[in-house]
């Protein structure tokens, strides 16, 4: 079965990944092969079959509405690439 073509540039942008020209070319061909291979699932009769999102049949897992201690500020800031005045700092946000 013919597979869909993958627009690697578009998908990489959705995934916020800069790809080099080499990577783009390699992925284009490798992912093309992989997509050809996964077409196999199209041949399976799934009429009336419910999708499985969880491997277990569990429902209604709730927690009580109680507060708990959070993370100490020094631990948070020690992990932050950039911070100032207890805030995480990022460059300009283009909306």
């Amino acid at each position: 079965m013919a597979s869909d073509t993958i627009d690697v540039t578009y998908v990489a942008r959705l995934a916020r990944l800069n790809l080099s020209a080499d990577e783009r070319a390699a992925f284009q061909s490798q992912l093309g092969q992989i997509l050809d291979y996964v077409q196999a699932i199209r041949g399976v009769d799934v009429t009336g079959v419910e999708p499985t999102a969880h491997a277990i049949r569990v429902q209604n897992r709730f927690r009580e509405d109680v507060t708990a201690d959070g993370l100490a500020m020094d631990a948070i800031l020690a992990n932050a690439p950039q911070h100032s005045d207890s805030q995480f700092i990022v460059p300009r946000i283009v909306e």
Partner: peptide, 24 residues
């Protein structure tokens, strides 16, 4: 109006200094 957040036990009250009501 809950005491804790949707998916963790951090408090929800307004006016706290930045990043003092957070957890992993």
């Amino acid at each position: 109006k809950t005491r804790s957040k949707m998916f963790c036990g951090c408090p929800t009250g307004p006016g706290a200094p930045p990043n003092t009501q957070v957890c992993p």
